[in-house]
Design a protein around this nucleic acid. Structure first.
Lengths: 252, 252
DNA sequence: CCAGAACTGAACCACCCGGTTCAATTCAGT
DNA sequence: ACTGAATTGAACCGGGTGGTTCAGTTCTGG
């Protein structure tokens, strides 16, 4: 009868669902009957479902994951899942988009820090330290378990869900690299960097960070130590600054 | 009754299967009844099955792919598939390993070219051109459709098949980067490069190549033009040489 | 306090998949 | 030409899946 779900039937107050469920989706409950028999509220079932869906999809893959398990993980009956999101495909899409948005905001926050810190220090050593710190925190974001799971699922199902490439991945990396390129451009104008093409520099900075990490963390299946992450960030920044740091202005 | 397949029952001459089926697995046939009614021979059914399995797995993912389709794609009856490889999991494993071996040999051949060409030219421009060419060809390998499919499947099923990480991916990238590091070490000894840590330099060289390509080719779903691949290789080599090329020997 | 919406649990359905069995057929080695 | 192995097609089985239905319960808004 009804074809378009997502907020067509309007099961709960789901139209205002722009509020990203921040950390864990299983404990925030409407401030009534708090701590009583019912462990969770009524209005955030949707968040619980999306979170559980991502967890299960990440653990078992889209094809192998079954909705019953997702419902169980969310502490919810199976019809409730279908009532909220109507379809396994839609469920997957929304779970991925939510996870992507969360990962994006984390990375953007790190790059935003570069704006703040980068303005304070002035000498070359300070710039190097700042870049290293930003790189390290960017690596922490990128090496988060949920982040790896997101990338794996994206890789896996890009054939069946091509639109997720844009809505989850493309926009994200583009915006992060754009913000990075903005900072590099300003640093170049200030004479502290020599990036003829800031966008390309940002692209390569990102590659120098995440590329080595992919191998070292075994595609995200092995937790990477803080020391190793810092070492990768240090190496990346060293190479980056040798190539783009202050020096001969041979802007090709 | 029987638990260990693969060459336990010995259906055909499969023990000698170390010969990698080179290009396409669907046309080589024993030199008899060539071109007649039966389109393929009898002895290379296994290759056909493995090739078809990889094709179907790449197209639909491990979970969604069903053996019937694989058998159809291979032009073979379903029991034949089970007779040869016994299990969907084993089928997947072997298809992945075969594809991984093929991709590895291609990349290794490219790096081997660096050994030959790198010895001839002497000036800096020639080194740059050689590195660009090697990078470009490495990118071509890495951007091959089957290569992307292999990486996607690896990413996707690394949770269910952790051993594939080593047998398909780890060994491959390690060997390529090792070969690259060897070349860099020799070039450093010859005074034409300054790589304090050749392994790390190779790691970053690889990252500068493949990282930007990941975004530009949309995770391998969009064919990348030769011009763009060449541009990425050029940019990577330029950055790499600025960082590690002849200049101040500030080996940290 | 009550009407109505959301939620639950369980059963149910049709479908498809992995894997097996089997008789009939085709091929390879000699 | 003949024997035995490989292959085929088709049917079959058990089980799990996506998705629905429904009666009954729990909560929410007013």
């Amino acid at each position: 009868m009804h074809n378009d779900y997502d907020h067509a039937i309007g099961p709960i107050g789901s139209e205002c669902c722009d509020s990203r469920y921040d950390a864990q989706v299983s404990e925030v409950s409407s401030p009534q009957t708090a701590g009583a028999g019912a462990p969770r509220g009524r209005i955030d079932k949707r968040h619980a479902i999306l979170g559980a869906a991502f967890t299960v999809f990440a653990r078992e893959g889209y094809g192998q994951a079954c909705v019953r398990v997702i419902a169980a993980e969310a502490g919810v009956a199976k019809p409730t899942v279908y009532n909220h999101l109507g379809d396994k495909e839609n469920l997957f899409r929304h779970a991925m988009e939510a996870a992507g948005a969360r990962a994006l905001t984390a990375s953007l926050a790190v790059v935003a820090e570069l704006r703040a810190e980068g303005a304070t220090a002035d000498d070359a050593a300070a710039l190097s330290a700042t870049l290293e710190d930003v790189g390290y925190r960017l690596l922490l974001c990128s090496c988060d378990e949920r982040s790896w799971a997101l990338r794996r699922l994206l890789y896996a199902e890009v054939g069946k869900f091509p639109e997720l490439l844009d809505s989850v991945w493309g926009h994200g990396t583009h915006r992060v690299q754009e913000a990075l390129a903005d900072r590099f451009a300003r640093l170049t104008l200030a004479g502290r960097l020599h990036t003829a093409d800031p966008a390309q520099a940002a692209e390569q900075f990102f590659a120098l960070l995440t590329g080595p990490m992919e191998a070292r963390s075994r595609l995200g299946t092995r937790p990477v130590s803080d020391a190793e992450a810092r070492e990768v960030a240090r190496a990346a920044v060293r190479t980056f600054l040798r190539a783009f740091g202050p020096g001969p202005d041979e802007t090709a």
